[in-house]
């Protein structure tokens, strides 16, 4: 069974179709990428999948379950984790508290258990802290656990967002331009991190402009342009697909390029 399936997924805004009847299939395991020029609808697609934007048409299934009408927090509990293109950490909280907040959907202690500090709450909280420290170790931020999150440098804030999303132990991790603003060394380290996450069993779906990053990591790529899916396949196939080259470079430049290669 596929982990994520969207069927005819559409989001219309006044005078604009941001996502236009997209059928996206993400099988369990591996790294999947969505690419496309600016304004192709990639972030809207992520917002539709995580429930921040309501679809105008179409359906979303997670692990066979229809989640189209489910609110964001329920989808989080069902296993959709994500990061944001513009970093959205909780700046005033410590790094560790950010990651603990990421585990919110998994924690079950009742109000009574919390208020009376019953053993169930205490042990759950201990486990959550241990798991949060593990997530921080995964992204290499263990030393920063007690710092206010806003004091982290940019690249570390991106990695904190990933740790926070992983604390929820998602089935599907959505990474929205994780390499944006990173230098080549940081990007290489990030690629290693994403690979480790995928190898540990979390399915990764990412949006990214850094083509080197996408081509080297992805098992499968979906290309969007003007909200429509124009191609999908293995990285090598994507690179040589005329429609994709055209979407990025424009028809005239693409034709010139083909002529030059011929």
């Amino acid at each position: 069974m596929n982990l994520l399936e969207t069927c005819g997924l559409t989001r219309r805004y006044a005078g604009l179709v941001a996502v236009d009847h997209v059928d996206l299939v993400v099988p369990r395991g591996g790294i999947h990428a969505v690419i496309g020029p600016n304004g192709a609808g990639k972030t809207t697609l992520f917002n539709l999948i995580s429930g921040l934007v309501v679809p105008s048409e179409g359906s979303i299934h997670l692990a066979g379950q229809d989640v189209t009408a489910r609110p964001t927090h329920v989808r989080a509990a069902l296993g959709i984790g994500r990061t944001f293109q513009n970093i959205r950490i909780f700046g005033e909280m410590s790094v560790l508290e950010n990651v603990l907040t990421g585990a919110h959907a998994r924690l079950r202690a009742s109000l009574v258990s919390i208020a009376l500090r019953l053993p169930g709450f205490r042990s759950e909280e201990r486990q959550a802290v241990a798991a949060a420290r593990e997530a921080l170790a995964l992204v290499g931020l263990s030393e920063r656990a007690a710092q206010p999150a806003s004091s982290l440098p940019y690249g570390d804030q991106r990695r904190l967002e990933i740790a926070r999303a992983m604390a929820g132990q998602p089935l599907l991790l959505l990474l929205d331009e994780p390499a944006a603003g990173m230098n080549p060394a940081e990007t290489t380290a990030l690629a290693g991190l994403v690979r480790r996450i995928a190898d540990a069993g979390t399915t990764v779906l990412l949006v990214e402009h850094d083509m080197g990053f996408v081509m080297s990591l992805s098992d499968h790529i979906t290309v969007l342009n003007f909200g429509r899916k124009i191609f999908e396949g293995k990285p090598a196939a994507v690179r040589s697909e005329p429609a994709v080259v055209e979407a990025y470079l424009g028809a005239r430049l693409a034709a010139k390029l083909r002529a030059a290669h011929a």
Partner: peptide, 24 residues
Amino acid sequence: SRIGRAMEAMREDATAAAVMGVNV
């Protein structure tokens, strides 16, 4: 507790809190 963390998270960024599974 998780409830206090959720409350502070909402105060800072309700969208991000919802993505963490907080029923805003």
